[in-house]
Design a binder for these strands. Sequence first.
DNA 1: GATCATCTTGACCGGACGGTCATCTACTAG
DNA 2: CTAGTAGATGACCGTCCGGTCAAGATGATC
Lengths: 200, 200
Amino acid sequence: MNAATDTRSRIIAAAKPRFHSRSYANVGIQEICDSAGVQKGSFYHFFPSKRDLVLAVIDEFADDWANGFVAEAFDPALPPMERIDYLVDAAYFWQKSIKQVHGRMLGCIFGNLTLEVSTQDDILRAKLLAIFSRAKSRFKATLEEAVTAGTIAALDADLTAEAMLAYLEGVILLAKSQNDPEVIYRLGPAIKTLRVEKAA
Amino acid sequence: MNAATDTRSRIIAAAKPRFHSRSYANVGIQEICDSAGVQKGSFYHFFPSKRDLVLAVIDEFADDWANGFVAEAFDPALPPMERIDYLVDAAYFWQKSIKQVHGRMLGCIFGNLTLEVSTQDDILRAKLLAIFSRAKSRFKATLEEAVTAGTIAALDADLTAEAMLAYLEGVILLAKSQNDPEVIYRLGPAIKTLRVEKAA
DNA sequence: GATCATCTTGACCGGACGGTCATCTACTAG
DNA sequence: CTAGTAGATGACCGTCCGGTCAAGATGATC
């Protein structure tokens, strides 16, 4: 790792928890630079704008998830519907551990950013939409596999997948409003009851 | 209406669409004052702080809903489960009309504010939590009535109500990420498939 | 007509914001 | 040894931020 990539990744590392725990508008470049031990001019050498930083932060969070819980949850060795349970559990344990350390339930950074910036910045909205789109695909493939395996009755896999993603985000939102990850524990499992029937 | 209350309500009227369409942090006091034709000193005569303004804005939005769509939807004359359909429809049509006028889907201001500020301001979080709590009660009473009427099988009304509220917020979030109210139209009706069984 | 509380005015505060820039350093390639 | 490039430095830009304040206007009460 040369000095250049190190500076860049230190900036991102400093930005991640801040954007996650507060909001896009509430975190300043100066604060990130101070925390990363980087000069502002150096920051703008790597990132043309604040938006480009948050874009990189979103990518890192997405990678963390894809290589972590998501990879574990969507393990082909698991029965399809158990993967969904696994993912909900992972969200619960993650939020719980964050709260233990941080004192707060921070929720899903993709959901947080979506509601904050998507009316003001179409580039950020498109980025977040792409993240959700990928998540939906995972759910969809899992549902299709479950139908094929006969675990569940036929349904509209595309819409049901989207509904499940919506539900998960909604549960995390409600949990955040109560600052209580147990909400995810209580409500999460009901995700499997969601059904959108195939159009006739 | 005397001059005092008029100034106060002009401030709130100017603030409402701004907080709804952007974010808490992104809307400044000065801008609101300019739009309302009020001096900043006058603003601070009525509101001790920006937070107090947004608290008043939340109350007005809650009243608008309570006296509008919510009153229509939770009409005792309607069969219980149809009330839930009505509410989802109302959310859809409302977001659709906002998009037609504004060009954007703005989503639910309570959800928007929750994800933006609830890690940073416990007073605002408590306020939003109270709003959600009231909404949940409406769902719960409706579900209990449906069970009593034999329309649906027995379930945990409290948790199912919370799950439905979560789902609605999640659907609106996803719709906002696509800037497309049709998402609510497609996914909304599945709200009735959500079930949390009574604990044994 | 005097008093008092309510409301209005507009200048002002310190500090934070995102972003720019000329200058300097360090490394690499020819 | 030279030239070029990537990166680091820190002062600087204009603007906006939430909030304050002393002074003035207004209108009701006694």
